[in-house]
Write a protein that binds this DNA or RNA. Structure first.
Lengths: 247, 247
DNA sequence: GAGTGGTCTAGACCACTCC
DNA sequence: GAGTGGTCTAGACCACTCA
């Protein structure tokens, strides 16, 4: 493996360069979510570095949930589908107030096309007026509606998404985006606020108009820190709360 | 370093045993927050393992914000005091709506002693009726009050805490607990809900009674996963929002 | 220049999976 | 038994800090 001079201003250690190369394999689709990537020895041979250097690159990527190691089997590309089916909502932080874990269910309400306004275009990094797809859905725990959300997606990337597809698909939303459109979400930022329920949301969630709701705005990113989803959810936090771990 | 048989049911790799040993050094106070711990070579010699094994143990602890490595200088015990003074609120996730970062200021309002009720005793792992200390304070950004919170602390651990001390101390609350009482917070869990402002909080925050507020309950843990703080804050999220990163 | 952490290598052996 | 990731070692050299 050739390495730039350590004196170069753009210097980065070998294992980070290897990490970049593996990342390119993920971005280019050479290895797709759920698939096995070559063994550490193979990658070491391919990149002309030692196995330990490949290992360190993969270590970091596994810590970032990009790869998944399984002893004796190999290293897999992380996927929203192969996850534990119970925890298939990897980014959802809702926890029941009374420990009772009711089965969750996503209820798609609407799905339509529109043109990006200024705010959406900025957050998604597309042109104002570019086509977008909007999904409106409800999240239920047992029979209880707990979240109502609107999801904004760049139309080109997710061309063909429809209410039917959403209704048919078994599994998580991100699982669908991944297997059907080849876009994997790897990271997200959420902005939380408290706000009063508007009439429509109140009706859907079964709370009084003006009741305090938790507003959760999320921007999700795929490889290369490219934002590909903006959503805004209103959470009814009477029976479920938003759990967060700080380190 | 002696190592149990790999066949033992309680087997853990060498570097984790080393990690345990270093952790014990932190818990026992052998190395205190902000201090330098022995070099990797010294620790390797002391524990009779190779330097690489010590390195892997420290790697994990640095990733968990227990230790802080500085090339050329050494490895330090992480501290809430040595942190970047701007970011001295390590667990505070509030971000201004309009990018303008106003200087934050903690205003202690009250500090009194009480006996633990059932809920507090459970969360703090102390006996019901055991002495606790309660702090009430306000968090301001610039002139704007944004958070009002009540903090419940086990009285024995933080014996002597008073309003005066709180008012005198320059620096973060956790910095105070650390330098004055030798208790370092390493991790916390937060439970978020939306709720309506009661009259007292509304007055303190300068919002209308019944206005939606973000309720943030936090349990903080010190070494050994021992809970030593329970607090409940009400956040006014008109000009600031709660930011969270998901991975 | 001495001492620290940071990177890279090479090789040995272990634990797990699958055939 | 062959192949995978997981651990451990030993040694070399680099980058940074401080005296």
């Amino acid at each position: 493996m050739l390495q730039e001079s350590p004196l170069s201003p753009t210097f980065s250690p070998l294992y980070r360069q290897i990490k970049r190369l593996i990342l390119q394999g993920l971005e280019s689709g050479e290895w797709r979510p759920g698939e096995l990537i070559p063994s550490e020895n193979e990658l070491a041979a391919r990149f002309n570095v030692s196995q330990g250097t490949v290992r360190k690159a993969i270590d970091e990527m596994a810590a970032e949930n990009l790869l998944l190691r399984r002893q004796g089997k190999g290293t897999y590309v992380a996927s929203h589908n192969d996850d534990d089916p119970h925890v298939s909502f990897r980014f959802l932080r809702l926890v029941p107030e009374n420990g009772k874990l009711e089965p969750s269910q996503s209820v798609p309400l609407e799905c339509w096309r529109a043109k990006a306004g200024l705010e959406v275009s900025r957050t998604l990094g597309i042109k104002p007026g570019a086509p977008i797809t909007i999904v409106r859905r409800l999240l239920k725990f047992g029979a209880k509606p707990v979240v109502v959300e609107e999801i904004y997606l760049p139309g080109e990337t997710f061309d063909g998404l429809s209410l039917e597809i959403l209704q048919e698909y078994q599994g998580s939303f991100y699982g669908l985006l991944e297997s059907r459109f080849g876009v994997r979400m790897i990271r997200a930022e959420e902005r939380l606020r408290a706000m009063a329920a508007d009439r429509a949301s109140a009706a859907l969630l079964g709370v009084a108009e003006g009741a305090p709701l938790l507003s959760v705005e999320r921007v999700s990113y795929t490889y290369g820190d490219r934002p590909v989803e903006w959503r805004r959810g209103l959470y009814s936090t009477a029976d479920y709360y938003y759990m967060n771990e700080l380190n």
